[in-house]
Amino acid sequence: MNVQIIVDSGTDLPKAYYNELSIEMVPLTVYLDEKDYLDQVDIESKTVYDAMRDGAAPKTAQPSPESFHEVFKKYADKGKTIIYFGLSSELSGTYQSATIAREQILEDYPDADIYTIDTKAASMGYGLIAYHAAKLAHEGASVQDILDLANHYVSHMEHIFTVDDLEYLQRGGRVSRTQAFVGSLLKIKPLLHVEEGKLVPLEKIRGAKKVLRRMVDLAKERGEDFNQQTLAITHGDDEENAQKLAELLRDELQPKDIIIYPIGSAIGAHAGPGTIALFFLSKTE
């Protein structure tokens, strides 16, 4: 394989895929209890969720350009084509760090073949893009074929998600303090999605039981050809509801496959425990 796929830990990809598809991962940093941890390396997401339930407010930081430079250089030295897929630049400065590192590498390796792609996605929305690109790379596909597939996924990736407590979104500036307070009183569950890389409120659902049902309905409205799609569900330490959502999807949409995995520490530090997210491809116009 002469094409090396590189990602950051905002993909929330299952760890097995990194080895299986030879994907290199650059971790974000999570700050918790006055300590620094590398996401997906030396902290488990459940540790973050348990701390948040106890009142902790973890913070995150993007990888430095130097972190990306080190990884890019390793593969530039081998003459490999490098494709980095990045967490949405609207949600993190991680993609910017990678872009700076690319420019530095090209100063020393003018002939290096390096692509940096802003997926405009997060969690397994981002992860699915990188996963399918890595599968093609592993099979020996051309760089152009990999980029074409990736750009199609970037243009059509849907995120539908809900959070258990609006307070976590309020901390991150996604909803106002008043909205969080009123929403908690009324037991309102927000549904959100992603537009051009930004988190955007979609609907408000009263009652947790109705949320999963509505997520399936939205998938029906927005997606197609589910029997040819691999869907993804990520969750903030809520395997039970993730499995309930998967069961509804299998019964009604018969997808090719469903990947279920916990949301990582970096994304989870902002979304909070109890988050449920669904990712699929939208209809082709």
Rank of each mutant, 00 (worst) to 15 (best):
D77K: 12
K78R: 15
G79E: 13
G79F: 12
T81G: 07
T81S: 12
I82G: 10
I82T: 06
I82A: 05
I83M: 04
I83G: 02
Y84D: 08
F85L: 15
F85E: 07
F85W: 10
L87K: 05
S88M: 05
S88E: 09
S89Q: 14
E90L: 04
L91H: 09
L91A: 11
S92P: 05
S92Q: 08
T94C: 11
Y95T: 13
Q96M: 08
Q96C: 07
T99C: 12
I100D: 07
A101D: 01
A101V: 06
R102S: 06
R102C: 04
E103I: 00
I105Y: 03
L106G: 05
E107M: 07
D108I: 08
Y109L: 08
Y109C: 04
P110M: 11
P110H: 09
P110K: 09
D111I: 00
A112H: 01
A112C: 04
D113M: 03
I114G: 03
Y115I: 09
I117D: 09
D118S: 10
T119W: 06
T119S: 13
K120D: 14
K120L: 15
K120R: 15
A121R: 05
S123Q: 12
M124C: 04
M124K: 02
M124I: 04
G125N: 07
Y126K: 04
Y126M: 10
L128I: 08
I129P: 00
A130F: 05
H132W: 06
L136S: 04
A137Y: 02
A137C: 10
H138F: 08
H138Y: 14
E139M: 06
E139W: 00
G140E: 13
G140T: 09
V143F: 01
Q144G: 01
Q144E: 15
D145R: 09
L147Y: 09
A150S: 15
N151G: 05
H152Y: 15
Y153E: 14
H156M: 11
H156D: 06
E158C: 12
E158L: 07
H159D: 13
D164Q: 11
D164H: 11
